[in-house]
Nucleic acid binder design. Structure first.
Lengths: 116, 116
DNA sequence: TAGTTCGATATTTCCGGAAATATGGAAAAA
DNA sequence: TTTTTCCATATTTCCGGAAATATCGAACTA
């Protein structure tokens, strides 16, 4: 991932409502959530939420698809993967010695990270 | 890492100069770099860089220590670790099925991630 | 009806000039 | 020699203008 897109993604996530929405969409994979449902869930006006969704979409982190009258948004996990890869490269690539303890302490799904 | 601090960190990194500086400091671990050297390297006025360093420090991503008349800044790898953990938790914790392919494709130091 | 776009306002962020603060070296004074 | 004074360097703080962002009512669209 190039720096420019990484900055877009970081900025998109650096806002309370957007981070909440994004987390909800990741958790809702692969089904997705309608924009209106998100607006209700987080008590945000529809137009404000629309603007936030637009920022997330512009960063490539989510994608909307019309489903009848409503529009279902889904998280783009591939983009998340690229973003995390970019950030890890900054640390590990820039300073390999820091990589070991860094990855060791990441507690997420260690058994899947090491498919023996 | 709590959400508030994660947002601070994401916002701190979502800016070209700050991301550049942060990357340089990660690469310069554990020695660190003086503020003035960073200003020269990235051709940014001292006061502007000082403001950026302040944002990074407030987010806990870097830390400055006086060394004589200059101030040496260092990256806080522990905080980076927390931030990456937070982001991974959003994906893996929120949707464990997405975790496997996500971590599999992270190319950083795979041999260290899986210390057989 | 569900969402988006437009337009206006409030707030925040970015930037750099000017001045203030901190440190230490070197010369001058006691 | 010790202390003070002065000066140069390093960085931060203060300030305001310009640009970007956040928010929401109202109109528009699918």
């Amino acid at each position: 991932m190039e720096k420019k897109r990484a900055i877009l993604a970081l900025a998109a996530l650096a806002q309370t409502t957007r981070l909440d929405v994004f987390r909800a969409l990741v958790a809702a994979e692969p089904t997705g959530v309608a924009a209106g449902d998100l607006a209700r869930r987080f008590a945000v006006p529809a137009n404000t939420l629309s603007a936030h969704l637009n920022v997330l979409a512009h960063a490539g982190l989510v994608k909307g698809e019309r489903k009848g009258r409503s529009i279902t948004y889904r998280a783009e996990l591939a983009q998340v993967r690229l973003l995390l890869g970019f950030m890890l490269k900054d640390c590990c690539g820039g300073n390999p010695d820091a990589c070991g303890p860094l990855l060791d302490q990441i507690v997420c799904c260690p058994e899947k990270a090491c498919p023996s």
